[in-house]
Design a protein around this nucleic acid. Structure first.
Length: 382
DNA sequence: AATACCGGGCTCTGCCATCATT
DNA sequence: AATGATGGCAGAGCCCGGTATT
């Protein structure tokens, strides 16, 4: 859902031959992301960290350097690892190598999650087998592992993984659902069973609270629509429900209906984000003369609109309005907002060129695949 | 044949705080 | 005390096509 464009672009490269193609990308990927926050954190007075007694393990550092690991990054992320007397960097690297990861990929993985080198090969072999219960190929695992080393390496509790599979299956999720979960939200499976159970119990509670007559199926409905839900806090979800209820004056049944349907996808938004996006949408709509009822209608029929950040939404709406489309039309056919601003503006231009009349013919033409749109233009051109 | 309706496919990490463990 | 394990957080969309309808 919230994939950043760059991430998505990278994903597209992850088709066959991923390892080779990632080659050039790794260094650039590695460096920029994480430095700023940490470096900016000024030591807070008395809490200033004194140098620990144990010095770094020199030969380990040397080893890592030879492997191409970004030791500076390791020092920032998990400095304790560098002070350990015994680590498994060679064995871990060999393990990953056997699974098909090239050297620079291995270096990137260790740089981003140094604790990986404290795992034993036996543990990794086990873990690999577990992941293969859900993924069909080693390459599938490698793609996720490379994307998110932390998800793969963070826990030393392998049994927990199995327990989670059992639990999730018991909710009615099938292998396809699990595959999707492990692909898109791998952290779900490193969550403790207790944590996952807590969220599921919470969802059932919510359903009952909202007057649903079948609370046991509710978690499955939400999870299969929103694979991220299990890596969120119940607090966040609760806050979001309250925000939506209050800002839209929703009844219990309206809320229930929303969350069982497309609204499941916005349950896990950062609460501030949800609030802000709502406020800016409201502001925008009021400015062009919409009523409260219009706002409610729009959000209920197309909750994903609250997922769109302030600036993106603003430019998208401006683009449509400038193109001669009215807010009323958008409220009636909100799906046009699913398309990128660039896409929309390109289509508007095309349609303007052929003299398309939105008043007359509506705006559905914007909500279609590229193929269909092109065919449409061709017909209009003829 | 063209359009409308609708659901589905892709899709998320890396850092920090706070426990528990040793 | 230092390290390990775990929970929580911010950030934030786009596109396609099957099938019913007209």
């Amino acid at each position: 859902m919230a994939a950043v464009a760059g991430v998505r672009a990278l994903q597209r490269l992850h088709q066959p031959g991923i390892f080779q193609r990632c080659f050039g990308l790794i260094p650039a990927q590695l460096t920029p992301t994480c430095l700023p926050r940490r470096l900016c954190t000024a030591p807070t007075g008395s809490k200033e960290r004194k140098q620990p007694d144990t010095p770094e393990n020199v030969s380990l550092v040397e080893n890592l350097n030879l492997m191409g690991v970004d030791v500076k990054m390791v020092r920032l992320r998990q400095p304790g690892v560098l002070r350990k007397a015994f680590t498994n960097e060679q064995a871990v690297a060999l393990f990953l190598d056997k699974k098909g990861a090239p050297t620079n990929m291995i270096a990137s993985i260790i740089s981003r999650y140094p604790r990986a080198i404290t795992r034993s090969v036996q543990h990794l072999e086990q873990r690999w087998v577990l992941w293969r219960k859900i993924f069909n190929t080693d390459e599938e695992i490698m793609i996720v592992l490379y994307r998110s080393p932390e998800s793969f390496f963070r826990t030393s509790n392998n049994a927990n993984f199995d327990n989670n599979i059992t639990f999730l299956t018991s909710l009615g999720l099938d292998t396809k659902d699990l595959h999707r979960l492990l692909t898109t939200a791998p952290r779900t499976f490193s969550n403790s069973l207790v944590l996952n159970k807590r969220m599921v119990a919470f969802l059932e509670e919510i359903c009952a609270e909202l007057g649903g007559n079948n609370p046991e199926q509710f978690p499955k409905a939400v999870i299969s629509r929103n694979p991220y839900i299990l890596i969120r806090s119940t607090k966040r979800v609760r806050t979001n429900i309250d925000i939506l209820r209050a800002s839209l004056m929703l009844s219990n049944s309206e809320l229930l209906h929303l969350f069982q349907g497309p609204g499941a996808e916005i349950m896990d938004l950062s609460s501030e984000c949800l609030k802000n996006n709502f406020l800016s949408l409201e502001q925008k709509m009021v400015a062009v003369g919409c009523q409260k009822a219009d706002i409610k209608k729009l959000i209920l029929s197309f909750p994903m609109i609250l997922f769109i950040g302030k600036d993106t939404l603003s430019s998208k709406l401006d683009c449509l309005l400038k193109g001669g489309i009215t807010m009323e039309q958008i409220v009636r056919k909100p799906k046009v907002l699913e398309y990128s601003t660039q896409n929309i503006s390109g289509r508007l231009e095309e349609l303007k060129r052929v003299g398309y009349d939105f008043q007359d013919k509506g705006i559905n033409v914007l909500d279609s695949s590229q193929k269909r749109f092109d065919a449409k233009i061709e017909r209009l051109d003829a």
